[in-house]
């Protein structure tokens, strides 16, 4: 069941980190000014993800449970540093284009999320394919978003002139045709927000339609649209280093109260299936509920 192929398809299609799980939004928005940058960022992340997954899977029985998040971070940060030096040496143009976002791969929630959710529980080889699949899914998503932004903002894709702009008009029957005016706002910061907004809206639409037909759509994440303070999503669980209840020492959130967490996610799903269409109001109430349960269980402990 855990064959390499199955993990690859899972990462690229079924649980695509960007389109389905909505993880790692900061780099998604920041580096997708062109398809090439998106692809470069995606592949860099893929390498880090696959290697760190393998390493964490090998060390999973050695790392003590209580300090596992800091340990994962050190492993991930080491790979990121190695890759940063390699890129600086061998691909300086990509290194310049991605800039500060290369070291920031360390805090990408996809990597820590996969380490926590998969690699810390499975052997090395499936973990490798899991990382590879997730990474390729991420690369695919970034390339698509980058291509859309580049096409609308500059009329190019991967630097090829696809649209008839004033600089590169089409020649039709001896006439110059240049009806396309690039909307450079799509390459600038605001465009990233608009493109992502449309993406999430399309995803919401798919989810709603699916739920109307009675399919199970609970896997599709809603992004970090909820209150981080009361968030029960497991996707970015690893990113909380310490128990928010303020217990002593670095207790990973997931280990400290995994039961509590399961309960919350169950609550959440119940809430979701009851009211898909007025989800804003419903979520508000549901969040308050989860907050209360969290507090109570914290006290019990």
């Amino acid at each position: 069941m855990n064959s390499g192929k199955e993990r690859l398809i899972n990462g690229i299609v079924k649980e695509n980190p960007t389109f389905v799980l909505m993880l790692g939004m900061c780099p998604t928005l920041a580096v997708t000014t062109s398809a090439m940058n998106g692809l470069g960022m995606g592949l860099t992340t893929t390498v880090v993800l696959a290697l760190s997954n393998v390493f964490i899977a090998i060390l999973r029985n050695i790392i003590p449970d209580k300090v596992r998040i800091p340990a994962f971070i050190v492993i991930i940060a080491s790979f990121v540093t190695m890759l940063e030096l390699l890129l600086e040496g061998f691909m300086p143009s990509l290194y310049d284009a991605l800039g500060i976002y290369i070291p920031l791969i360390v805090v990408n929630c996809i990597i820590l999320g996969r380490a926590e959710a998969y690699a810390s529980k499975n052997p090395a080889i499936p973990s490798f394919f899991d990382g590879l699949g997730m990474g390729l899914g991420f690369s695919f998503a970034l390339t698509c978003i980058g291509a859309v932004r580049e096409l609308l903002g500059a009329g190019d894709v991967f630097g090829f002139h696809l649209m008839p702009t004033a600089d590169h008009p089409w020649m039709i029957g001896g006439n110059e045709v240049a009806f396309f005016t690039p909307a450079s706002i799509f390459v600038l910061a605001p465009g990233a927000f608009f493109v992502l907004a449309c993406l999430v809206a399309i995803q919401n639409k798919i989810k709603m339609d699916g739920e109307k037909k009675g399919k199970d759509m609970s896997k599709i994440g809603s992004g970090c649209s909820d209150d981080c303070l009361n968030c029960g999503e497991t996707g970015c669980s690893g990113r909380k280093f310490y128990d928010p209840e303020g217990s002593d020492g670095p207790v990973g959130k997931a280990s400290g109260n995994s039961e509590d967490k399961k309960k919350i996610s169950e609550d959440k799903q119940d809430g979701k299936s009851e009211s898909q269409n007025e989800n804003t109001e419903a979520k508000q109430g549901e969040i308050e509920e989860t907050k209360e349960t969290k507090k109570e269980e914290g006290k019990d402990e």
């Binding site: 910061a189 605001p190 907004a197 809206a201 919401n204 639409k205 989800n279």
Partner: peptide, 20 residues
Amino acid sequence: IPAPFKGMPIVLVTAGLMAI
């Protein structure tokens, strides 16, 4: 707000306008 845009998408549009 149109149903698919409720929640996160409309917030992103707002953020985009702020970015402009």
